[in-house]
């Protein structure tokens, strides 16, 4: 069992998983989003090879209005 922080909210998963699986499981499939793990950018091409580990902080961002 691992506990991670996704966009500021703590969440527990039964088993280790990679970032691509995490995105699918959390409902982000097909959406325009980018991901950082522990403050470091994880490119799309590396999401399925990047494991999420216990205690990780994951940020999932999308386009928003800006000045």
């Amino acid at each position: 069992m691992i506990t991670i922080t996704i966009n500021g909210h703590s969440k527990t998963f039964p088993a280790a998983l990679d970032i691509a699986a995490l995105l699918a499981q959390e409902g982000y499939a097909g959406m325009t989003v980018a991901v950082a793990r522990n403050g470091t950018f994880v490119p799309k091409a590396k999401q399925s090879q990047t494991a999420v580990q216990n205690g990780d902080t994951i940020d999932i961002v999308a386009p928003m209005q800006g000045g």
Binding site: N7, T32, D59, G67
Partner: peptide
């Protein structure tokens, strides 16, 4: 444009 944390509801997608 900018970036923000996205919920699974996908609010940023319409804007984009």
């Amino acid at each position: 444009v900018s970036l923000r944390r996205e919920s699974a509801a996908g609010h940023g997608q319409k804007f984009w």
